[in-house]
Write a protein that binds this DNA or RNA. Sequence first.
DNA 1: CGCAATTGTCATAAGGCGGTAACGTTGCGC
DNA 2: GCGCAACGTTACCGCCTTATGACAATTGCG
Lengths: 229, 229
Amino acid sequence: MPSPRLLLVEDDLSLAELLQYRFEAEGYRVISTPDGDEALLLAEEQAPDLVILDWMVEGTSGIEICRRLRRGKGTAHVPIVMLTARDAEEDRIRGLETGADDYLTKPFSPRELIARVGAVLRRVRPALAGEMLEVGDIRLDATSHRATRRGQSLQLGPTEFRLLKFFMEHPGRVFSRVQLLDAVWGTGSDIELRTVDVHIRRLRKGLTIENSTDPVRTVRSAGYAFEAV
Amino acid sequence: MPSPRLLLVEDDLSLAELLQYRFEAEGYRVISTPDGDEALLLAEEQAPDLVILDWMVEGTSGIEICRRLRRGKGTAHVPIVMLTARDAEEDRIRGLETGADDYLTKPFSPRELIARVGAVLRRVRPALAGEMLEVGDIRLDATSHRATRRGQSLQLGPTEFRLLKFFMEHPGRVFSRVQLLDAVWGTGSDIELRTVDVHIRRLRKGLTIENSTDPVRTVRSAGYAFEAV
DNA sequence: CGCAATTGTCATAAGGCGGTAACGTTGCGC
DNA sequence: GCGCAACGTTACCGCCTTATGACAATTGCG
C-alpha cells in the first residue's frame, strides 16, 4: 500500500513534531511547515494527499489558506482537516463552510486526529487506505496491484495502471490532458500532451474483454472521463 | 439540483423532530426512524445519500448498524455521520475506525451538524452539493461535462456546450451577439456576428427532445435569452 | 549481455466541428 | 400590402482534434 503524504501546517513546533512522529509511525509521509505562505507553495509543489491545517499560523491565517487551496487549480480537491485552539462553534462552522473536510478542537488526542484523517482519506482516496476500487464491472486493488473486469484479470502496463487507478478514484469527472499529466505522470513532467492520447488508447485496449464497452469517454476539446458502463 | 436524501436514526424523538425540521429547511429530504433494525431496512430500500446515526438507539446499536451498512452490498459506500451522548475518545475513535465519516458529540448545534453533513456530501457527491446547473428541465454538470433534459442526455458540440453553460449561469437575461461572442468565444475573437445565429440554431436543435419547447428566446434587435419553460 | 516489456514521440488518417456565405422567412413601420 | 431589416436555416469547406500504428530509446530482468 502506498503511504499517503500529509502536509502539516502547525506553528507550535513541539506539537508539530509529536504529530509528525505519530503519523510516520502509522505509515504516513509527512511534510511539515509552520508558515502559512510556505504551506501554499508546498501544497502546490508537492500535491499532498491531505492537509492538516492549524487555524492560526504565521504568515497567512489558516482559514485564508483553506480558501486559497480551494481556489487553487491543482489544490482545489485536497482534503483539509483543520485544528483550532478556540472551541467557538462559529469558527467550526466557518471552517467547514470554507471547505474543510473535518475539524478538531485543541486539545485533541493524536489518536483521534489519526482516526479522523483515516476516515477522510478512506472516503476521498479509497486506494490510499488500502481499499478496493470498483467502478461498473471493473475492480482495482491497489494493494496487490491487480485489476480485473468481470473476474477476468486485466493486463496493463505500469502507466496504464496508474492512469486507471486515477480515473477510478474520480469516476465520471472529465480531466484535461494537463490534469492527467500532473496527476498520473507527476507535476512538472515535461511530456508531450498528445502522449496522453496514446496511453488512453493503450488503456482502452487493456480494458477490452469479450462483449465489453469502452468505459473511457472522450470529451472533445476537454479531455477524457471514466465511467461505469 | 436534486435535494439530497438523509436517513436519520435517532431515538430521542424531540431531537429527531428538530433535526428533521432544520434539514428540510436546508433543502434536504429526511427519512427518520428511531429503530436500529428498521434503519437497516430503510437504508437498503431507500438508498439515502447519507445516514445520520445515533450511537445508542433501540434495537441494534449504532456501531453495529454502521458495521452492517459497510458490509451490505448496496450500502457499503453510504456516508455515515455518528452522534453520541458520551464524549469518550475511545468511542469516537472506534466509530471512525468502524467506517463512520464523521462524528459529533452531544450536545451539538444543529448548524454544526448541517455544516458537517454538507462537508461530507460535498466530498462524496459533488453533484449533490452544487456544481450542477439547473434551469427548467435542463441540467448541466460541468464536472462530468454532461447536459441532460428530463433525464435524457443531450448531444452538444464543445461550442454549444459552452454557450449553454453561459446561458444557464445567467438565466433570463438577454445578451447581444457581441456579448455572447465575448463570453463564449473569448474577448477579441474576430468572428462574424451572424455566426452566433448559427450556433443558437445548433443549440436549439441539440436541446430538442420529444414534446419539448424552445428555451432560447429571440429578442429582436437585441439578442437572445435563455429561460425555463 | 541479450531479450522483452514499456514508454514517449511522430506521421498519418479519420472525422467532427466551426465559420461563412447564400438564401429563405419573419416581423415591423408606414 | 410593401419594403426593409433582422432572424432562421442550410450547405459547404477548411481546420482542428483525436485515433492509430510504427519506431527508437529506455528500462528491467534473467
